[in-house]
């Protein structure tokens, strides 16, 4: 794994990145969409976002491939309880230092089945992901393999860890856990 802690100064065009992703993921790619973000006067494309939906099996392979293109800048993870699966989204960007309008937002969405809520930790590759992984662990109950620190991050010390605040099923907060202030 090549992990250069520096950013590339020249970007690749989105098509090239997309081809690379298709090649790397193969079967594991579920969906891919390139969104152009328009603003300004005259109204024109100012930057682009790439939305990728993939299977969990292809995740690490894809991250390593993207890291070869540029050091993947990690923004945040978001997630939602979608019934049978918990969908985890990683919001990242490429070409952060590669010039005006060249940053490419990359979102990786991965559905994780509820009976096997395990996901590989990225904290070894990108140390900046630690907080997000801890947050997703306490809020949604996703177990990150390889995450060293599993202390609570945002919830109070005396929190009952069986309750996962963002879940919509029986593990979510019950009415008695919720306080109405006024």
């Amino acid at each position: 794994m090549t992990c250069r802690p520096q950013y590339v100064q020249e970007c690749k065009c989105p098509d090239e990145v997309m081809n690379c992703i298709r090649e790397t993921l193969g079967e594991c790619l579920l969906e891919m969409e390139l969104r152009e973000r328009m603003d300004g006067m005259p109204r024109r494309v100012l930057y682009r976002d790439l939305w990728i939906r993939l299977k969990r099996d292809g995740f690490l392979k894809l991250v390593d491939r993207l890291m070869e293109i540029d050091f993947l800048h990690f923004h945040v993870m978001s997630g939602n309880d979608d019934g049978d699966v918990v969908t985890l989204n990683l919001h990242c960007s490429l070409f952060r230092e590669a010039g005006a309008g060249h940053r490419l937002g990359v979102t990786l969405s991965i559905p994780i089945p509820k009976d096997d809520l395990v996901f590989p930790s990225l904290s070894g590759r990108i140390p900046g992901t630690e907080y997000s992984e801890r947050e997703m662990r306490e809020m949604l109950g996703i177990h990150f393999e390889g995450l060293q620190n599993t202390d609570l991050l945002f919830l109070p010390e005396n929190w009952d860890e069986e309750i996962k605040p963002w879940r919509r099923d029986e593990t979510g907060p019950a009415p008695e856990n919720i306080r109405e202030l006024s």
Binding site: P5, G40, Y47, H73, S93, F95, A100, G128, T129
Partner: peptide
């Protein structure tokens, strides 16, 4: 870079990163 620093903290470390520039 590794710890995903942002804004003036990243720029103070010499990274030329600013969303107003890279994705206006």
């Amino acid at each position: 870079v590794k710890y995903c620093a942002l804004g003036p903290t990243a720029r103070g470390s010499g990274l030329r990163v600013d969303l107003r520039h890279s994705s206006p």
